[in-house]
């Protein structure tokens, strides 16, 4: 029993320690922002590997999610004779929830894990250490541009996901199932509020981009510099990102849509 309490105390302490280091690390990353804005080339390179390379998986998934919503929504709504509101249902689910959340989860799997593996390998092969010895701060030179790229890419990807999904829902709804196209769009426009829905959705995706990039970079930077350590860190990135995204989504949803 004493052993158990001891272990509990020890693991609590290590997790607080890790959180502390991660916070310090975050400040260091953010403090490099100005330097990177003066060298946009570094940011563009990372936008490519973080954003562009996630483009395909995000848009294709968005299309399918929208199509599934179109199908499921239609069958459920037609029971109540409310097929006209299919557009509202598809758009609201995508813009408020599925767009930010699913694209963030995909982003964590595609870009987050790649970031962790890349940084972890750079650590394992002494590239980060070598950079430090060349008087170049690896956090500012390597990690900050990746962090900013994640922060910028995430809302763009989430927006694409939702947009493609809404079109996908329309293809199924009015192309296949015969909901009037005009009604699909006009009902949607009548119910989806720019501020309450679109802006809040974008805020969510910025928060998710922030957290996912932070976790991915920290896990990579903090990885034990061996192949096993890096592969464990990659797994941790995906798991921790998924937990954080879903947990934060709950909190943000409660804050944003709670008092309607």
């Amino acid at each position: 029993m004493i052993q158990f309490i001891q272990n509990l105390g020890k693991s609590t302490r290590t997790s607080f320690n890790k959180l502390g280091r991660a916070t310090y690390f975050l400040f260091e990353i953010i403090s490099g922002t100005l330097g990177i804005l003066l060298r946009p080339r570094l940011l563009v390179n990372q936008l490519y590997s973080v954003g562009v390379l996630s483009f395909l998986i995000i848009t294709i998934s968005g299309l399918f999610v929208g199509m599934v919503l179109g199908l499921q929504g239609y069958y459920t709504l037609s029971d109540f004779g409310a097929e006209e509101t299919l557009g509202v249902m598809v758009a609201a689910s995508l813009v408020r929830e599925l767009g930010p959340v699913v694209s963030a989860l995909l982003f964590a799997g595609r870009a987050g894990s790649a970031l962790t593996a890349e940084i972890g390998l750079m650590k394992a092969t002494e590239q980060l250490s070598g950079m430090e010895m060349m008087a170049v701060d690896p956090i500012k030179r390597i990690l900050t541009p990746r962090f900013l790229a994640g922060l910028i890419s995430m809302p763009l990807l989430a927006g694409l996901f939702s947009a493609v999904g809404i079109v996908g829902g329309q293809i199924i709804g009015s192309g296949l199932l015969g909901v009037d196209q005009g009604i699909y769009w006009s009902q949607m426009q009548a119910s989806i509020d720019f501020h309450d829905d679109i802006i809040n959705g974008i805020i969510k995706s910025v928060v998710f981009g922030f957290v996912t990039s932070w976790i991915a970079l920290f896990e990579g930077y903090d990885a034990i510099p061996t192949s096993e350590g890096v592969s464990r860190a990659t797994t941790r990135t995906v798991v921790n990102s998924a937990f954080s995204i879903l947990g934060l989504d709950f909190i943000l949803t409660a804050l944003m849509f709670g008092d309607n």
Binding site: M122, E126, Q127, A135
Partner: peptide
Amino acid sequence: LYELRKRLGMLFQSGALLT
């Protein structure tokens, strides 16, 4: 320290080239 390191070269075991 960074100023000092600019005057030091270090050759790592693995080379530590940026991949």
